[in-house]
């Protein structure tokens, strides 16, 4: 794989994310990634207390739970209508290998 270390990384990440990028996109992506990672690097400056717990967003920690009860499923046709390819019963996808 030719290119800068950043481009190699971008190639690997694009693979992991299942995104096809052409060479020009890889180049520009590598540049932007380096720029933003550089900016994000300032997080290293933050002096974090040792016991600090991460905050993942939800303000309340009350259990959100539902009873084990049935609810009507969505009719198959409505669900499959949005699929790019189906035979009316199954979603169809190209062969795995």
């Amino acid at each position: 794989m030719a290119g800068t270390p950043e481009q190699t990384t971008v190639n690997q990440v694009a693979k992991l994310a299942r995104i096809h990028l052409n060479e020009q996109q890889i180049e520009s992506s590598a540049e932007k990634l380096a720029q933003i990672l550089g900016y994000i690097g300032q997080l290293d400056e933050v002096e974090l207390p040792e016991d600090v717990t991460p905050f993942f967003g939800a303000i309340e920690s009350v259990n959100a739970i539902r009873d084990d009860q049935l609810q009507a499923s969505v009719p198959r046709k409505e669900i499959l209508d949005n699929a790019p390819d189906s035979d009316g019963e199954f979603y169809l996808v190209p062969p795995v290998f």
Partner: peptide
């Protein structure tokens, strides 16, 4: 697989990408 847009591919991985 499930929502509208799909670009063709010879196999699953290519279709994904």
């Amino acid at each position: 697989v499930r929502y509208t847009f799909r670009a063709p591919g010879n196999d699953l991985e290519e279709m994904y990408r």
